[in-house]
Amino acid sequence: MSLFRKFFGSSSSASDEEREREVQETSIFNNMSIDEQFIYHFKKNGGKFLYCENIEELKEQFENILAENDWFESQVLCYDPKLYGLLDENKLTYGMTSNPKFLFTSCESLIAEEGSILFSSKQIKQHKPNELPTNIVVYATTSQMLAIKSDGLTAIKKKYERDYPTNITAIKYFEKAKEEDFTQYGSSPKNLYLLLLEDL
Protein backbone atom coordinates (compact mmCIF):
# COMPACT_ATOMS: atom_id res chain seq x y z
CA MET A 1 0.00 0.00 0.00
CA SER A 2 1.37 3.41 -0.96
CA LEU A 3 2.01 6.17 1.57
CA PHE A 4 -0.70 8.34 -0.04
CA ARG A 5 -3.34 5.61 0.28
CA LYS A 6 -2.59 5.30 3.98
CA PHE A 7 -3.31 9.00 4.49
CA PHE A 8 -5.99 9.53 1.84
CA GLY A 9 -7.49 6.04 1.57
CA SER A 10 -11.04 7.13 2.38
CA SER A 11 -11.18 9.60 -0.52
CA SER A 12 -10.43 6.91 -3.10
CA SER A 13 -13.34 4.78 -1.85
CA ALA A 14 -15.55 7.89 -1.95
CA SER A 15 -14.54 8.56 -5.57
CA ASP A 16 -15.17 4.88 -6.39
CA GLU A 17 -18.67 5.20 -4.95
CA GLU A 18 -19.24 8.36 -6.98
CA ARG A 19 -18.04 6.64 -10.17
CA GLU A 20 -20.32 3.70 -9.48
CA ARG A 21 -23.28 6.05 -8.96
CA GLU A 22 -22.50 7.80 -12.28
CA VAL A 23 -22.38 4.45 -14.11
CA GLN A 24 -25.74 3.46 -12.59
CA GLU A 25 -27.29 6.83 -13.56
CA THR A 26 -25.93 6.50 -17.12
CA SER A 27 -27.47 3.04 -17.54
CA ILE A 28 -30.79 4.34 -16.18
CA PHE A 29 -30.76 7.30 -18.60
CA ASN A 30 -29.96 5.05 -21.56
CA ASN A 31 -33.23 3.22 -20.89
CA MET A 32 -35.27 6.42 -20.42
CA SER A 33 -37.23 8.13 -23.18
CA ILE A 34 -36.41 11.76 -24.01
CA ASP A 35 -39.47 13.04 -22.14
CA GLU A 36 -38.58 10.99 -19.04
CA GLN A 37 -35.01 12.35 -19.14
CA PHE A 38 -36.28 15.92 -19.44
CA ILE A 39 -38.74 15.55 -16.55
CA TYR A 40 -36.08 13.94 -14.33
CA HIS A 41 -33.49 16.69 -14.94
CA PHE A 42 -36.05 19.52 -14.90
CA LYS A 43 -37.39 18.49 -11.48
CA LYS A 44 -33.84 17.87 -10.19
CA ASN A 45 -33.05 21.48 -11.19
CA GLY A 46 -36.01 22.69 -9.11
CA GLY A 47 -38.58 23.28 -11.84
CA LYS A 48 -42.32 22.82 -11.29
CA PHE A 49 -43.84 20.58 -13.94
CA LEU A 50 -47.56 20.52 -14.86
CA TYR A 51 -48.64 18.08 -17.58
CA CYS A 52 -51.82 19.00 -19.48
CA GLU A 53 -53.69 16.66 -21.85
CA ASN A 54 -55.73 19.46 -23.48
CA ILE A 55 -56.26 23.23 -23.56
CA GLU A 56 -58.99 23.13 -20.88
CA GLU A 57 -56.61 21.40 -18.47
CA LEU A 58 -53.90 23.93 -19.32
CA LYS A 59 -56.25 26.83 -18.53
CA GLU A 60 -57.17 25.20 -15.23
CA GLN A 61 -53.51 24.62 -14.27
CA PHE A 62 -52.68 28.24 -15.19
CA GLU A 63 -55.46 29.45 -12.87
CA ASN A 64 -54.11 27.17 -10.12
CA ILE A 65 -50.67 28.82 -10.48
CA LEU A 66 -52.27 32.28 -10.23
CA ALA A 67 -54.24 31.25 -7.12
CA GLU A 68 -51.23 29.57 -5.46
CA ASN A 69 -49.13 32.73 -5.83
CA ASP A 70 -51.93 35.33 -5.47
CA TRP A 71 -51.16 36.72 -8.96
CA PHE A 72 -54.74 37.54 -10.03
CA GLU A 73 -55.09 41.08 -11.44
CA SER A 74 -51.29 41.46 -11.53
CA GLN A 75 -48.93 42.92 -14.11
CA VAL A 76 -47.32 40.34 -16.40
CA LEU A 77 -44.41 40.49 -18.84
CA CYS A 78 -45.48 38.73 -22.06
CA TYR A 79 -44.22 39.21 -25.62
CA ASP A 80 -46.21 36.41 -27.30
CA PRO A 81 -49.58 37.53 -28.81
CA LYS A 82 -50.76 33.88 -28.88
CA LEU A 83 -50.77 33.92 -25.06
CA TYR A 84 -52.67 37.21 -24.60
CA GLY A 85 -56.08 35.46 -24.60
CA LEU A 86 -55.20 33.46 -21.49
CA LEU A 87 -54.03 36.65 -19.76
CA ASP A 88 -57.24 38.51 -20.76
CA GLU A 89 -59.41 35.66 -19.41
CA ASN A 90 -57.74 36.10 -16.01
CA LYS A 91 -57.79 39.92 -15.98
CA LEU A 92 -54.00 40.26 -16.05
CA THR A 93 -52.31 43.43 -17.28
CA TYR A 94 -49.56 42.98 -19.86
CA GLY A 95 -47.60 45.12 -22.28
CA MET A 96 -45.28 47.86 -21.03
CA THR A 97 -45.52 46.99 -17.34
CA SER A 98 -43.23 48.58 -14.78
CA ASN A 99 -43.29 45.88 -12.10
CA PRO A 100 -44.38 42.49 -13.49
CA LYS A 101 -45.10 39.67 -11.03
CA PHE A 102 -44.05 37.05 -13.59
CA LEU A 103 -43.03 36.38 -17.18
CA PHE A 104 -45.52 34.35 -19.22
CA THR A 105 -43.90 32.95 -22.33
CA SER A 106 -43.55 30.17 -24.83
CA CYS A 107 -40.09 28.75 -25.62
CA GLU A 108 -38.02 27.37 -28.49
CA SER A 109 -37.48 23.87 -27.06
CA LEU A 110 -37.05 21.72 -23.97
CA ILE A 111 -33.61 20.09 -23.65
CA ALA A 112 -33.72 16.59 -22.14
CA GLU A 113 -30.00 16.09 -21.36
CA GLU A 114 -29.94 18.92 -18.81
CA GLY A 115 -33.60 19.71 -18.10
CA SER A 116 -33.22 23.23 -19.45
CA ILE A 117 -35.53 25.46 -21.47
CA LEU A 118 -34.21 27.16 -24.62
CA PHE A 119 -35.39 30.71 -25.37
CA SER A 120 -34.60 33.26 -28.06
CA SER A 121 -35.35 36.92 -28.72
CA LYS A 122 -38.74 35.78 -30.08
CA GLN A 123 -39.83 35.06 -26.49
CA ILE A 124 -37.68 37.27 -24.25
CA LYS A 125 -36.52 40.03 -26.64
CA GLN A 126 -32.99 41.17 -25.68
CA HIS A 127 -33.33 40.50 -21.94
CA LYS A 128 -30.60 38.51 -20.25
CA PRO A 129 -31.89 35.86 -17.78
CA ASN A 130 -30.95 38.02 -14.76
CA GLU A 131 -33.08 40.89 -16.21
CA LEU A 132 -36.22 38.74 -16.36
CA PRO A 133 -38.67 38.47 -13.45
CA THR A 134 -37.80 35.85 -10.82
CA ASN A 135 -41.13 34.09 -11.50
CA ILE A 136 -41.66 32.53 -14.93
CA VAL A 137 -44.54 30.50 -16.35
CA VAL A 138 -43.65 28.70 -19.59
CA TYR A 139 -46.14 27.26 -22.06
CA ALA A 140 -44.64 24.41 -24.14
CA THR A 141 -45.75 21.31 -26.02
CA THR A 142 -44.47 17.74 -25.90
CA SER A 143 -43.29 18.02 -29.54
CA GLN A 144 -40.75 20.65 -28.42
CA MET A 145 -38.73 18.11 -26.39
CA LEU A 146 -35.30 17.46 -27.88
CA ALA A 147 -32.40 15.31 -26.70
CA ILE A 148 -29.51 17.82 -26.66
CA LYS A 149 -28.90 21.55 -26.98
CA SER A 150 -27.46 21.29 -30.51
CA ASP A 151 -30.80 19.76 -31.62
CA GLY A 152 -32.48 22.88 -30.23
CA LEU A 153 -30.18 25.15 -32.21
CA THR A 154 -30.82 23.12 -35.38
CA ALA A 155 -34.58 23.41 -34.80
CA ILE A 156 -34.25 27.21 -34.48
CA LYS A 157 -32.35 27.35 -37.81
CA LYS A 158 -35.09 25.35 -39.55
CA LYS A 159 -37.95 27.30 -37.96
CA TYR A 160 -36.59 30.77 -38.79
CA GLU A 161 -34.97 30.46 -42.20
CA ARG A 162 -34.81 34.20 -42.89
CA ASP A 163 -35.70 36.05 -39.69
CA TYR A 164 -33.10 34.31 -37.49
CA PRO A 165 -33.56 35.22 -33.80
CA THR A 166 -30.82 36.58 -31.58
CA ASN A 167 -30.26 36.24 -27.82
CA ILE A 168 -30.52 32.45 -27.76
CA THR A 169 -30.21 31.34 -24.15
CA ALA A 170 -31.08 28.36 -21.96
CA ILE A 171 -32.39 28.64 -18.42
CA LYS A 172 -31.43 25.63 -16.34
CA TYR A 173 -31.55 26.54 -12.63
CA PHE A 174 -34.95 26.93 -11.03
CA GLU A 175 -33.94 27.24 -7.39
CA LYS A 176 -30.98 28.60 -5.49
CA ALA A 177 -28.29 25.97 -4.82
CA LYS A 178 -28.37 24.67 -1.26
CA GLU A 179 -24.56 24.56 -1.23
CA GLU A 180 -21.98 26.62 -3.08
CA ASP A 181 -21.97 25.25 -6.61
CA PHE A 182 -19.49 26.72 -9.08
CA THR A 183 -21.60 25.47 -12.04
CA GLN A 184 -24.30 27.98 -11.07
CA TYR A 185 -21.86 30.91 -10.90
CA GLY A 186 -23.31 33.91 -12.76
CA SER A 187 -26.74 32.31 -13.23
CA SER A 188 -29.87 33.71 -11.69
CA PRO A 189 -32.21 30.94 -10.45
CA LYS A 190 -35.87 31.30 -11.45
CA ASN A 191 -39.09 30.14 -9.81
CA LEU A 192 -40.30 28.40 -12.95
CA TYR A 193 -43.54 26.61 -13.77
CA LEU A 194 -43.78 24.57 -16.98
CA LEU A 195 -47.25 24.06 -18.46
CA LEU A 196 -46.60 21.15 -20.84
CA LEU A 197 -49.40 20.49 -23.35
CA GLU A 198 -49.65 17.07 -25.01
CA ASP A 199 -49.65 17.55 -28.80
CA LEU A 200 -48.27 14.23 -30.09
Results as ranks from 00 to 15, higher is better:
Tyr51His: 14
Arg5Phe: 10
Ser13Leu: 08
Ser15Thr: 11
Lys59Tyr: 08
Leu66His: 12
Leu83Trp: 10
Glu20Gly: 12
Arg21Ala: 03
Leu58Met: 15
Gly46Arg: 03
Tyr51Arg: 12
Val76Asp: 02
Leu58Trp: 05
Tyr94Ala: 09
Tyr94Asn: 07
Ile28His: 09
Gly95Ser: 12
Lys6Pro: 04
Asp88Phe: 07
Phe104Gly: 02
Ser11Gly: 02
Leu86Gln: 06
Lys6Trp: 05
Thr105Met: 02
Asn69Lys: 09
Ser106Arg: 13
Arg21Tyr: 05
Thr93Ile: 08
Asn99Gln: 09
Tyr84Gln: 04
Ser10Phe: 03
Asn69Met: 02
Glu22Arg: 07
Phe4Met: 07
Ser10Gly: 03
Cys107Thr: 08
Trp71Gln: 04
Asn64Met: 12
Asn30Phe: 06
Val76Gly: 02
Met32Leu: 09
Lys48Cys: 04
Phe4Thr: 11
Ser15Leu: 14
Arg19His: 10
Ile34Cys: 07
Asn30Gly: 12
Met32Gln: 14
Glu73Gln: 11
Met96Asp: 15
Cys107Pro: 06
Asn90Gly: 05
Gly9Asn: 00
Asp16Ala: 05
Gly47Glu: 03
Thr105Arg: 06
Met96Leu: 13
Pro81Met: 02
Phe38Ile: 05
Asp80Ser: 14
Gly46Tyr: 01
Glu89Trp: 00
Gln37Met: 15
His41Glu: 15
Tyr79Ile: 00
Gly9Glu: 00
Gly95Asp: 13
Phe72Arg: 04
Asn31Lys: 15
Asp80Pro: 05
